[in-house]
Computed example of a mutant assay.
Amino acid sequence: MSTAPTDFIDLSFRTDLGLLFSRWLRSTSDAEVRLGYEAALAVAAPYGARYWLLDMRRRGPASLAATRWVIETFLPRLAEYFPQRVYLAYLLSPSHLTDFVPAGRPALLNCYEVALFSDEAAALHWLEHCRHAEAAPVL
Rank of each mutant, 00 (worst) to 15 (best):
S93H: 12
T67D: 12
R77N: 10
Y87W: 15
P61I: 08
Y81N: 06
P76G: 02
A40H: 05
T73A: 14
S93L: 10
Q84V: 06
S63H: 03
Y90C: 01
F82I: 02
R50L: 07
G60F: 01
L64R: 15
Y37S: 04
R77K: 13
A45V: 03
V70K: 07
E38P: 01
L91G: 00
Y47S: 12
A89T: 05
V101L: 15
A45I: 02
I71D: 14
R59G: 13
R85C: 11
A40T: 00
A62V: 14
Y81Q: 09
V86E: 06
Y47P: 00
L92C: 00
T73V: 15
S95I: 08
Q84F: 05
A89I: 09
G60C: 03
L41W: 06
I71Q: 14
Y90T: 00
Y37R: 10
E72R: 13
H96A: 15
R50M: 08
A62Y: 08
Y81E: 10
S63Q: 08
L64G: 06
R58D: 13
A65D: 15
L53E: 03
T67A: 13
P83V: 02
E38Y: 08
R77W: 04
I71K: 14
L97S: 02
Q84M: 06
T67K: 14
S95H: 11
R68V: 09
Y87L: 01
G60R: 03
L92N: 10
A65T: 13
A65G: 04
Y81K: 08
A103H: 12
L54Q: 11
Y90W: 11
L75Q: 10
T98C: 09
E38M: 07
S63F: 02
R50H: 09
R50F: 04
L41A: 03
P94H: 09
R85E: 11
A49R: 06
A44N: 06
P94M: 07
L92V: 00
Y81A: 10
V101Y: 13
H96N: 13
P83Y: 01
F74A: 06
F82R: 07
G48P: 10
R50W: 04
G60T: 00
H96F: 15
V101G: 01
Q84G: 12
P46K: 08
A65L: 13
A39Y: 09
P102S: 10
